[in-house]
Amino acid sequence: MDTIIIDGLSFALPLFIMAIGGIYSEKSGITNLALEGFQGFGAFIGALSAVLIANAYGTDVENLFYVALLFAMIGGMGFSVIHAVLSIKFKANQVISGVVINILALALTTFLTTQINALVFGAASDKFRLGVSERFTIEGLADIPVIGAVFTDVYPFQVIIIVIAIFAWYVLYKTRFGLHLRASGENPHSVDAAGVDVAKIRFSAVLISGLLSGLAGMCFAYSISAQFSSSIYMGYGFLAIAALIFGNWKILPTLAACLLFGFAKSGGTFISQALALPSSFTDLFMILPYVLTLLLLIFFSKSNQAPRALGEIYDKGKR
């Protein structure tokens, strides 16, 4: 039971922060299917920095988690510039741009990982070994029955994510920037008429989604995978998109959706282990979150309300 909560949370929170990135982008009016690519590319940059630094200074990669996290955020943000430029400056179709970015990220990072491994480390490998970030347990609180699991074996990034999430909520709903951002996704003409630059707002929003996705990707790499390889492209980015849609583009309901996915995933693993099934069957349980997505679609699709101008190319002239 405890492991379901512990593993569920450590999966759900990175998913959540990535979904928040998606909310920023989509609330500003830019459809963002590129979260998957952002998190992968961000994690690649983070992992690469960590491995290189460890190599240069002879430190242990496991201890370079925070450095990696920082670089991953920068990497994700840098990569998201492609989506922002294509869909805002060049008014390209946002769905195509997003899909292509995902393919590009997978191909580019896989290629670069093998090349760098061969050139720098002289090893024939398609992954960067990272290890698992350290964890901590809050004594006392951890002894509370059931809820105690929340405070047991916590990754530090979970705390970071919660702090950032609260800040993201504050920016989106309480500040001038947030008011402009949400209006851009509902009716960009009104924002324009109010003398605010719609393109600038949307550009920032997409960059924020890249930054938060990079953060999420790095958390995945330092926890469940313990490495960076093409296995980071497991579709978590799409799961985050599903979560934000089920969450109706609102932060708190999105958290609920992410937790549901998290517990579905850890629950699936737990059941397959408890039943001592062969490993080919554990894969079957891994699809649980995705099956859940399909089921939830049936119930949530009706009441959903996407930002009104989502995915629409904004053209000043058209009324």
Partner: peptide, 18 residues
Amino acid sequence: FKLVDDYTITENIILGME
């Protein structure tokens, strides 16, 4: 009209001059 349907009257009016 250039109004954000999902916003209140106040939010629409102050947009850009909050």
